[in-house]
Design a protein around this nucleic acid. Structure first.
Lengths: 161, 161
DNA sequence: TATTGTTATACTCTATAACTATA
DNA sequence: TATAGTTATAGAGTATAACAATA
């Protein structure tokens, strides 16, 4: 992710730019922090972690095209991430009898254990970051982001927001 | 930027993970949109645009180390971006008499004009994205992100949030 | 010694497009 | 024809580290 701008305009939409600046700035800082910690403490990356998180929430496994849709990256990249995680023994491919084109990806036992450790830390990091903000403000933030999210969903393509 | 997770935990900090998921998801979608538009309509990239935005807000110019700090990337990358923008005639380096190590970067006239066009579009895109959300909610979102921002500032290093 | 900026390099992440195999 | 996944490739974006010039 990249950063903020401080430019001032003449169109009267300054507040939109400022909102975006603040959003992306907060996200960049947090994401950099998470990325660094995942690398230093677990030797992994954000996309690898996120694929595992998707799979942890789907014990029956996910098709690669579904992972592609959810993670908003193209098929080729899912192949690459899957290859690496499979080599590490964290996920496994299996074939569907009903459609031999399709691969279903699941966490292995090892993958599930590894993800469990990582996600505990990840959750704690986020708690450390957010818990200094009053619960009421966090809740309001969550709700208002939900409004943005549903607008984006309606507005831009058919990607999940 | 990367994407969301939907994992559920046992530590009771689920809401922190959900907040982060929603934040980063919204940011990813918007950022991808801005990146695509900057490339398609202006043949530029987000970091290039953002450096120009920083310089547009500082008519007296900025030191490269200051750009590095503001954009949260290392010096070497600022050198690279500056080289490219300079080659396009959009920025110029100048030397300080008081410290001959330092380079001060400014937008050229062309750079200022180019940025003016781009930032008008950029502002309009953001307005299109955000304006469907009620003003009151956007304002609340902005304020609550401000709380996060100042906490991050206090918490993580000395980087500007 | 510390700081500013440069250079060289390598890696992660991503998109595009051509491909294979199935449907 | 359309879809699922693979492969190859190119480029963006970034960090690390060694370096030169200056403070």
């Amino acid at each position: 992710m990249t950063n903020a701008t401080t430019f001032h305009s003449e169109q009267g939409h300054d507040s939109d730019v400022q909102l975006w600046t603040r959003m992306t700035s907060c996200c960049t800082v947090i994401e950099n922090e998470l990325r660094t910690r995942l690398r230093n403490e677990f030797g992994t990356t954000l996309p690898h972690f996120e694929m595992m998180a998707q799979l942890a929430g789907a014990p029956e496994g996910l098709k690669m095209s579904e992972l592609s849709r959810r993670m908003r990256v193209t098929n080729g990249n899912i192949t690459g991430i899957t290859d690496q995680l499979e080599k590490e023994g964290l996920v496994e491919r299996s074939k569907l009898a009903t459609d031999r084109r399709t691969s279903v990806i699941k966490l292995t036992i090892n993958g599930r254990q590894a993800f469990s450790r990582m996600s505990k830390a990840h959750e704690q990091w986020l708690h450390d970051i957010f818990s200094r903000s009053p619960q009421q403000k966090r809740s309001s933030l969550y709700k208002n982001l939900g409004v943005i999210k549903s607008m984006l969903k309606a507005q831009l393509h058919n990607k999940p927001a």
